[in-house]
Amino acid sequence: MRYAMVIDTLKCVGCSDCVVACQTENNVPIGYCRDWITETVNGAYPNVELELKSERCNHCDNAPCVRCCPTGASHIVEGGIVLVTPNECIGCGACIQSCPYDARYSHPEGYVDKCTFCHHRVEKGQQPACVSVCPTKCMYFGDLDDPNSEVSQLLKNRTWKTLAPEAGTKPHVFYLI
């Protein structure tokens, strides 16, 4: 089992519904967010390209945050999901420093928090909150180990990229381009 998220940048309109759904589902404190939208403009007029992306923790295979954690609070569970155990976290900030995606933040209660791929929903066979609300259906969630899953098929048939591949983290969030 290897969970992955595939996001179609050609279908995303940047409505931020995934951001709001995540904040509601996971009770994210006001002013914080576990996922966010970036808008990238490439080129100069008249040859301009716009790319919209919904970004979050990449649940890396080679997760630097898990490597750097001094207490083992950051850990990888079945399916490759990276989680933080709040009462093992000392709030040292090492994982925040080690994340090339800046996906982690210090929760006002002290521990470090980030996207969990909605582990509590995925366990029950549901989709993560952000995926389930997307009005353009540009987000897909599934198992990479299953060659017939929707995500595997999309990655097989479409061109895709990952963020900061040069950081060597082997991320699990893929962007169709």
Partner: peptide, 23 residues
């Protein structure tokens, strides 16, 4: 030329606009 910006109002304390978790 590339220009990148956050459209969902990402302004996480101590992370944006620049990381400042260690003082």
């Amino acid at each position: 030329m590339q220009e990148e910006l956050f459209t969902s109002g990402r302004n996480i304390p101590h992370i944006d606009p620049s990381l400042e978790i260690w003082h």
